[in-house]
Design a protein around this nucleic acid. Structure first.
Length: 784
DNA sequence: TTAGGGTTAG
């Protein structure tokens, strides 16, 4: 056999790089060693160094470099560029200085790499030294070098140097202008970006896909829908009409401007064949940004049919889950993250901490937080927010201190969490102290959310009048949340007169919200002012505000059982009623008195007691007690807030039956155990907006814990009251029994059928999947 | 005849 030519081998190594295949790279390396004499030529060595460093196999690349003779600037630049490519900027500098130690001079290819490294590491002084070196060698005149130096100055915040660099450039090309516009946008100088774009067009420049994307970002940041629409028109007339990345930029732009309909239009225009993972992510992010979390989850499930999940996609959908309180879907997405090896990603990790914190699984949030190799402010905020959610002021404050000891400065969001933790825990003095030191100590101007926290803090602790005085002295206009906090406190402490003031402000600011009307009428009702309460209810009806219908549901085996108030339609109704009667007797003995304040009509006491007694969450709980094995926690979900009576009743029941009961309402989680609730009797005073429609109930995704064990996610989808199982690609698994068999390890055929729905890009991937499968099965068997 | 700049999503 003739030895393959160096050119052919070089091309094969390039192929290995472009397909991210270390396997191919190593195979070609082996072929080279078999067919070529040692020492290898510099040409082949350079290719090998490049291949290994691009594929992030730095040890191999360094070893190859040490064997290369002579080592030229090409050898070194191959290694350095690979480091930069894999964001190993410090290694890039290490090799750069090793190169200089061998007296090898950097060239026009080396400088862009090291400029990028210093820009990314925010090292302006190193950047300046490099600039001096590039001036001395004359490399700065090169358009690539000049552009990357300009980019470095922009990214390290040296605006004057950046501008000088741009103005002194002998040549500018499309990339230079793109870099200019992009940095202007990132710097918040959007008008400058627009001016540059116009100037670029004036000097006869022809924009490309990147120019459009970057420019659309400027439009989105200025929320200039009009300008963006003009650019859209421009794009439609250009040859970038069909360009996927430009379309993705448009989806993002419309999403940021709140025009979700246009985002969807652009998305659907791309079509199935051409849309890529970024298209899906942009669409997903646009929905999340516009608070369409349920649709975002649906889009995510559809995206899974076409593309492999990325860290971007997973973190976006996790934030949708967190907003919805969708612990089950969130857990299955966590499993996907493990499988996709992105669970350590900064954004994914932060989103997981946020999800578990918001869903009340604080131990899980702590675990993810502790295990994250890298944290940023968002991560810390998510964890502090988790403690705030629980009302654990001590943990929230100690983490806040710890964060400062790591040299991380808090921001607006951090202080909202810290203050809300104080208010939930009734830590009035500490809360006020932190609020007063916001400007001086942390340099943060208090915003509406901070004021709302303080109103809540004062009001909740009974200082309702002081809270009102505080509002009157506010330097900014009080928002819905500020008045909402006051109304809630008034209801809590029976301050009807002040409550009326707050309610009237709320009706002005947010006339369509049913929650405010409900809280107000309930406040009047609990003060015995039934006539006025009835008037508010009538007003609500007259202007067409309806109180949302409450549902509670509980999952038992492979079915979700949904209940409404006074529901008697369930097939086990007689057993449910018997259970309720039994509980009622035992609770009465334990000292339970029905809290009828929240039953909404002017009824006799006896009738009111029975109204609250038949709330949907109590019926769901009674059913759970009948249907779920003893010792198993009962998880109930409710689309509205849990009422005070049910909250008190479930505390009693948790002690009587010795069971853990977890109720997830539209606002938060309640973890009942031995007569106590994790919320410490606080569950927010927010509006009574249902967190989920019945639509999502059908889409509700549940997940058995076994799936998390092996990092394999199956979606259990509720459809028509039946639980169905779906693979990650959205393929329906026929028969729950088969899946069970598969986990029992009884049927290899069932397992392989299950796996038909899972795409395997190459054999290695498939083997890994099988490995996961076997491991999870072993772990599952070990646990029973 | 091997190495390079600007890049849409959170």
């Amino acid at each position: 056999m003739n030895a393959p030519s160096p050119n052919l081998l070089g091309s094969l190594l390039e192929l290995a790089v472009s397909t991210h295949s270390t396997l191919l790279g190593r195979a070609v390396h082996a072929l080279i060693l078999r067919t070529h004499d040692i020492p290898l030529s510099s040409f082949l060595c350079n290719h090998l160094v490049n291949m290994y460093s691009k594929l992030d196999r730095l040890n191999s690349a360094e070893l190859l470099l040490s064997l290369t003779n002579p080592r030229t600037v090409v050898t070194w630049t191959s290694l350095i560029s690979g480091c930069v490519h894999n964001r190993r900027f410090t290694s890039a500098f290490l090799h750069f200085s090793n190169m200089r130690r061998e007296s090898v001079l950097p060239n026009d290819f080396t400088f862009p790499c090291v400029f990028k490294a210093s820009g990314s590491l925010h090292m302006p002084f190193t950047g300046k030294q490099l600039h001096a070196l590039a001036l001395k060698g004359g490399n700065i005149l090169d358009v690539f070098v000049g552009c990357s130096a300009f980019d470095m100055y922009s990214k390290t915040g040296l605006r004057v140097e950046a501008r000088n660099m741009f103005e002194e450039m002998p040549h500018r090309n499309l990339a230079t202008w793109n870099a200019y516009i992009s940095n202007a946008v990132q710097d918040g100088r959007c008008l400058d970006a627009v001016a540059a774009f116009k100037k670029f067009l004036c000097v006869g420049g022809e924009p490309n896909a990147i120019t459009f994307c970057v420019f659309l970002n400027a439009c989105a940041d200025m929320v200039s829908l009009e300008l963006g629409i003009q650019v859209h028109g421009f794009i439609v007339r250009s040859r970038y009409r069909e360009d996927v990345s430009v379309s993705n930029g448009l989806i993002d732009f419309y999403g940021k401007c709140g025009d979700i309909v246009s985002s969807e239009m652009v998305f659907s225009r791309i079509g199935c064949g051409r849309r890529n993972v970024v298209s899906w992510c942009s669409m997903l992010a646009a929905l999340v940004q516009n608070h369409e979390e349920e649709r975002a989850c649906t889009v995510f499930l559809k995206a899974r049919e076409e593309v492999e999940p990325t860290d971007f996609m997973i973190s976006s959908v996790l934030s949708a889950c967190a907003e919805l309180g969708g612990l089950e879907l969130g857990r299955s997405v966590h499993a996907l993250a493990v499988r996709a090896c992105v669970e350590e990603n900064l954004f994914v990790g932060s989103a997981l901490v946020d999800l578990y914190g918001k869903c009340g699984s604080i131990e899980k949030a702590e675990q993810v937080f502790r295990e994250m190799p890298e944290k940023n402010l968002v991560t810390w905020n998510a964890m502090i927010g988790g403690y705030a959610h629980l009302g654990d002021v001590d943990m929230a404050l100690s983490l806040f201190e710890e964060m400062s000891s790591f040299g991380i400065a808090p921001n607006y969001v951090t202080l909202v969490s810290v203050l809300s933790a104080c208010s939930r825990a009734g830590a009035v003095e500490r809360g006020l102290h932190i609020f007063e030191s916001m400007r001086g100590r942390y340099g943060i101007e208090p915003g509406a959310e901070h004021y709302a926290c303080i109103v809540d803090l004062l009001g909740r602790s009974g200082l309702v009048d002081r809270a009102y005085e505080f509002i009157k002295r506010m330097p900014i206009l009080p928002t819905i949340s500020v008045w909402g906090a006051l109304l809630g406190s008034c209801k809590m402490h029976g301050k009807t007169k002040l409550g009326k003031i707050a309610a009237e402000k709320l009706f002005q600011l947010d006339p369509d919200d049913s929650g405010n009307h409900v809280v107000f009428s309930n406040m009047l009702a609990s003060a015995g002012r039934w006539e006025e309460a009835t008037i508010v209810r009538k007003e609500m009806r007259d202007i067409g505000i309806k109180k949302n219908v409450g549902y509670s549901w509980v999952a038992v085996k492979n079915r979700v059982h949904v209940f409404q108030a006074k529901d008697s339609s369930h097939e086990k109704n007689s057993e449910i009623q018997a259970m309720l009667a039994k509980l009622r007797g035992e609770m009465k003995k334990a000292g339970y008195v029905p809290d009828t304040n929240l039953s909404l009509f002017d009824l006799e006491e006896e009738e009111k007691a029975s109204e609250v007694w038949y709330h949907s969450e109590k019926i769901a709980l009674a059913f759970g007690l009948i249907a779920l094995p003893h010792g198993m926690p009962i998880r109930i979900t409710k689309n509205l807030r849990i009422c005070a009576d049910c909250h008190s009743a479930i505390k009693f029941i948790s002690k009587i039956v010795g069971r853990e009961i977890i109720v997830r309402d539209n606002n938060r989680f309640h973890h009942f155990k031995n007569g106590w609730c994790s919320c410490k009797d606080y569950w927010g005073l927010g509006a009574d907006v249902p967190f989920t429609s019945m639509g999502i109930l059908r889409q509700l995704v549940l997940l058995g814990s076994s799936a998390l064990d092996g990092g394999i996610a199956y979606f259990l989808v509720v459809e028509g009251g039946q639980l169905l199982m779906m693979s990650q690609q959205g393929v329906l698994i026929q028969g729950w029994e088969m899946c069970r068999k598969c986990f029992m390890g009884n049927s290899a055929a069932a397992a392989s059928e299950l796996y038909q729905g899972v795409s395997s890009k190459d054999r290695i991937n498939q083997q890994l999947e099988w490995l996961w499968m076997i491991q999870s099965w072993k772990r599952w068997r070990g646990s029973i």
